[in-house]
């Protein structure tokens, strides 16, 4: 138990010290949020609804990013630096190591969600019901699981540089095409039809529904779950192939 708590604490410390995390997951979304709700005139029909909608976009953008990037890159780092091997030789059981990373990651996500929500509430005086705040936060927290699974895929790569490069590009593509930077509705038809099949769109969509007083649709849940299964199977398949080699 002592080892588990200590492991969680250290995992959290490590993420907070990571400058990429602080920049991409906390500063960028807040700056973007400020720009697209206050500086740039978006001619939204309902400004209040747009402000709440875009706050969800940016929070989802932030959490998706740290899910994809932090975990995967750390896996590559630990493997290439011999740390994974060393940990295998200590008495720390694998499941504790793994669950501590998950808990650490979740705490970080809760922190990101809280900080960005607070920023939104302060910058634009967004008023949602407590239930809406809570539900949208919870949706973003749980909906990030498929992206964590995706992160472990990058974690199987050989070099930190490759993993960081590819995951970064994919992160941006998912964010833009999934309607996180600007709503899908204002994009060309072709983009829209691609976007509707991306996990990022359904991740954001659930939160957008909640702040409009609705609930995530079944389609959101089913597609995110399907992606989770695909990523996990793919990860298992690649790992087995790597072990055989």
């Amino acid at each position: 138990m002592k080892a588990f708590q200590m492991q969680c604490k250290m995992e959290i410390k490590r993420v907070l010290r990571n400058r990429y995390f602080v920049f991409w997951s906390l500063m960028m979304p807040i700056i973007f949020y400020y720009i697209f709700t206050n500086v740039v005139n978006t001619n939204a029909a309902d400004p209040a609804a747009w402000k709440a909608h875009y706050l969800m976009s940016m929070t989802a953008f932030s959490v998706m990013g740290s899910s994809i990037m932090t975990l995967g890159i750390r896996m590559v780092q630990e493997r290439t630096q011999g740390w994974s091997t060393f940990i295998r030789l200590t008495p720390l059981p694998d499941h504790i190591y793994f669950s501590a990373q998950m808990v650490g990651q979740s705490v970080i996500h809760i922190l990101s969600i809280t900080v960005i929500f607070l920023a939104g509430a302060i910058i634009n005086r967004i008023s949602l019901t407590p239930m809406e705040w809570f539900m949208s936060g919870l949706w973003i927290l749980l909906g990030s699981i498929p992206f964590l699974a995706m992160g472990t895929l990058f974690g199987l790569m050989k070099k930190v540089e490759t993993a960081a490069g590819i995951s970064n590009v994919l992160y941006m593509v998912l964010a833009v095409c999934g309607g996180m930077w600007m709503p899908l509705e204002i994009m060309p038809k072709a983009m829209q039809s691609i976007g509707h099949w991306l996990p990022s769109y359904h991740f954001g969509s659930g939160a957008w529904e909640i702040v409009q007083g609705g609930l995530p649709s079944w389609k959101n849940i089913v597609i995110l779950f399907a992606y989770l299964v695909v990523f996990m199977l793919l990860s298992k398949y690649i790992r087995r192939k790597q072990e055989a080699a």
Partner: peptide, 30 residues
């Protein structure tokens, strides 16, 4: 595992922590 201590050829470190923190962490395993 609790009774062995090892040093491998490959140098291993955990990025993002100080030496003190790593030692505190690893000590908690035993």
């Amino acid at each position: 595992r609790q009774k062995i201590g090892t040093m491998l050829q490959e140098v291993s470190v955990m990025p993002g922590l100080t030496i003190n923190e790593i030692l505190v962490l690893i000590r908690s395993y035993y």
